[in-house]
Design a protein around this nucleic acid. Structure first.
Lengths: 112, 112
DNA sequence: GGGCTATTTCAAGATAGTATGAAATGGATA
DNA sequence: TATCCATTTCATACTATCTTGAAATAGCCC
């Protein structure tokens, strides 16, 4: 395979195509990361993450701020939950959501 | 609207629902960020970003490592390009892709 | 110019993600 | 128990994203 020279020189230094391939994370890690990024690929979910970065909130408050239908909000909360970015604990009739450690990491990167 | 007490106390401190709403970025910023996250929500694109974090590469080398069809690779490169995470410069018959500053930011966050 | 190569573009179908409203769940209160 | 309220679940329609193979583009070399 012919390769442009400036690329070829550096490529040799990292062990060629084989060397590059070895630098990549395994399939599971890539799947996990892409799931996390997917969870943040929507403005509604991004808002939720940023809100929970301020403080834990019940669904009722989140709904007021984000202004979407109940079922839609629930759907997006679930996407974030499945990506392990947020978690909810029942408190009487309410559910209070907060960021997981992973969620904190992303929120911090997003703000900073 | 009734609110669970532990939430209500903190909520008052940040200015209630109105205060929370003001903390959120504007629509364009949210759209930009969600586009960036979407661009990274796929294992193939994640691989590409990580590869380009090592060094600039032509499509031919990326294809070897990622092992997908030409048109499919081109599609994913374009998603990353539209999100302004990578950029390509033609070099003779090749196109050499590298990370943009934004792409570097994400790659660094991903590795660290 | 003619042929070769790297990469992109296009159109089509296949798949995945999202919105919506109605119904279900489950805790609280009386 | 009956009722109310916050939230989720479900079914369905809709929309966006992805894959595939074939064709197009554009630079290089003879």
């Amino acid at each position: 395979m012919p390769i442009p020279e400036p690329v070829e020189d550096d490529l040799a230094r990292v062990g060629g195509v084989v060397g590059l391939t070895r630098l990549l994370p395994d399939r599971e890690t890539l799947a996990l990361r892409s799931q996390q990024f997917h969870a943040l690929s929507d403005p509604v979910r991004l808002k939720i993450l940023l809100l929970l970065a301020v403080q834990p909130l019940c669904v009722c408050v989140i709904r007021e701020v984000v202004a979407v239908a109940d079922s839609r909000l629930s759907y997006h909360l679930n996407v974030l939950k499945k990506a392990d970015l947020i978690a909810g604990v029942a408190q009487g009739n309410w559910i209070i959501y907060s960021l997981t450690p992973e969620g904190e990491r992303f929120a911090a990167a997003l703000v900073g």
